[in-house]
């Protein structure tokens, strides 16, 4: 999918996103943990939509499920749906300003959180209130920084 040097940059970014996804936080802060891997996948599908593979995204989601101990497929489902929407809309979204994109990211991460919440309630839990949407909010706030950082990395390592 990528050249061999590029591949290591991408794998490195994925590993860092997964580490951030399990980094221990105090209980109350855990509600607002941004969806780092999803942000990476959204960036990816905006920049190189032609080379974003839904199968690969599904596999990434499965890896995240394994690592975080959620039911297999929970993150995968959310990520595939979000990536599909991204692939349908990237032509419009890549012309947006950063903060406009952030609003769009809020909606996308919100969708993935909704599916996660749906899976959670299907497996017998009951989630209190709308707390599950907090990650969408924090992810949207983080998006401009995330975008700049990834752009910087991309140019630095000439990943295309």
């Amino acid at each position: 999918m990528f050249g061999s040097a590029d591949r290591w940059v991408v794998i490195g970014a994925v590993l860092v996103a997964l580490l951030l996804a399990v980094y221990p936080l105090p209980l109350d802060w855990r509600w607002g943990r941004p969806a780092f891997l999803l942000l990476l996948v959204i960036y990816w599908s905006l920049i190189v939509p032609g080379r974003t593979s839904l199968t690969l995204v599904w596999c990434l989601g499965l890896v995240q499920d394994l690592i975080t101990g959620t039911p297999l497929g929970q993150h995968a489902l959310g990520m595939v749906i979000v990536t599909y929407i991204c692939l349908q809309s990237y032509q419009r979204v890549c012309n947006y300003g950063l903060w406009q994109q952030a609003c769009w990211v809020f909606v996308l991460v919100g969708i993935s959180q909704l599916t996660a919440n749906w899976v959670y309630t299907m497996s017998g839990g009951n989630a209190p209130g709308l707390y599950f949407l907090l990650p969408a909010f924090t992810s949207a706030l983080l998006w401009p920084f995330c975008y700049r950082l990834l752009e910087h990395l991309r140019h630095r390592f000439a990943v295309s």
């Binding site: 996804a21 109350d28 975080t68 101990g69 839990g125 989630a127």
Partner: peptide, 11 residues
């Protein structure tokens, strides 16, 4: 060595 990243599950 670690705690569950998900606030809804206590593992």
């Amino acid at each position: 060595i670690g705690i569950s990243p998900d606030p809804l599950t206590h593992t």
